[in-house]
Each structure stands twice: as structure tokens, then as C-alpha cells.
Simulated assay, not measured.
Amino acid sequence: MSNSDPVLLIETVRPDDGRTESFWVALVITGVLLLGGLGILLRQEQTSATDTRPQLDLLQRQFLMELTIAADEIRFITTMNSEVSTDTGFVNWPLEQLLQEQLLPVFPGQSAKAWQQLEPGCLLLPQPASRIHFGLVLQQAGSSIHYAPADVPLPDHCETLLSWQRMDIQS
């Protein structure tokens, strides 16, 4: 062969069936979907799985229900009798009168005398067996029930009681 002879090149031409393009398109779609899913996961708010409400046993839940009913009864009676202090907004009922009318519940085996009055309208019931404390704040605007676990010391005034965890849903 001489330099002037043409060289024959054989080129294989595959049919245009779309197999190669389909692979790349499927790969790009999968990548976009994965990145979108990752973006959604990263933008979601992280929710806390821990429940901040205390875990009460059956007797404590029953007592909480009875205390809620008692708070409603006391609020109803005080609106009928106008036993509210105008300067503080707290109910002016003495603890002895509430105990005499048997409006305050107690835990089984506990005396009604276990209730303590910190200030007018602020009542406290410690439970010696489990060392937890329940508080009842009687105000003109509404009653509130508060809870403190065993490691919290007994309060000496109503401000401390109001800082405990609120257990009712009333306003």
C-alpha cells in the first residue's frame, strides 16, 4: 500500500433506541428525589420526644381529678358569697372553713389537717409517702393547681408555689 491509498475505517453505528439516555435520565431523577428528601428532612423542626408532664400514679391522678372538682366548687361558692379580696384577687376563705365544709380532698390515709395555708388563697398539700406536693391557688380569675416532685422543698410563700408545674387547664 502506498500513501495515496485511502484507508478504510469501519465505524459501528448503533441504533438510536434510547437505552443510554434512559439510564442517565433515571439517574438524574433519582438524584433529584434523594436530594429533595434530604432537604425536607434537614428543614424539619426537631421535636422533643420527652414528655415534660410528670408521671403520676393512679392515686395521684385520682387526687388531681378530685382537686380539680374541688377548685371548681370553691370558685362557684366564692362567686356566690363574694369572698374575694379586692386588693390581691385571692379568695379570702380561711383553711379551717374549707376543711370544715369538706371541700378539700386528701390522699387515702391522710388527714385533712395535712393541708397548709401559705397565704390567703394559697394552699399546699404535701404527700409524705411519695414526698410530692400539690398546691391549690384560689383566685378571683380562676383556680390553679400546681405540682412539685419529691426533690423540691416545701415553699414558704405563694410566689414559690406559682412557679411549680401547673397541672390544670383552667385560666
Rank of each mutant, 00 (worst) to 15 (best):
R43E: 10
R43N: 14
R43M: 12
Q44A: 15
Q46Y: 00
T47A: 11
S48M: 03
S48R: 05
S48C: 06
S48T: 12
T50Q: 15
T50K: 14
T52H: 14
R53C: 02
R53Y: 05
P54A: 03
L56Y: 05
L56F: 06
D57V: 06
D57T: 03
D57S: 07
L58P: 02
L58E: 05
L59W: 15
L59M: 10
L59A: 14
L59R: 12
L59P: 10
L59S: 14
R61T: 06
Q62F: 06
Q62K: 07
Q62S: 14
F63M: 08
F63C: 05
L64P: 07
M65G: 06
E66C: 10
E66G: 10
E66H: 11
L67M: 03
L67Q: 00
L67A: 07
I69K: 11
A70Q: 08
A71M: 02
A71F: 01
D72Q: 10
I74S: 00
I74M: 03
I74K: 00
R75N: 12
R75K: 11
R75Q: 13
F76Y: 13
I77Y: 03
T79N: 15
M80T: 10
S82D: 10
S82C: 03
E83R: 06
S85N: 10
T86H: 03
D87F: 00
D87M: 03
D87W: 00
D87C: 02
T88R: 05
T88I: 09
F90W: 03
F90Y: 06
F90A: 11
V91G: 07
N92M: 13
W93D: 02
P94N: 04
L95Y: 07
E96W: 05
E96K: 15
E96T: 13
Q97M: 14
L98E: 02
L98V: 04
L99C: 04
L99M: 09
Q100F: 08
Q102N: 08
Q102H: 09
L103I: 09
L104F: 02
L104T: 03
L104E: 01
P105F: 01
P105L: 00
V106F: 13
V106D: 11
V106C: 12
V106P: 09
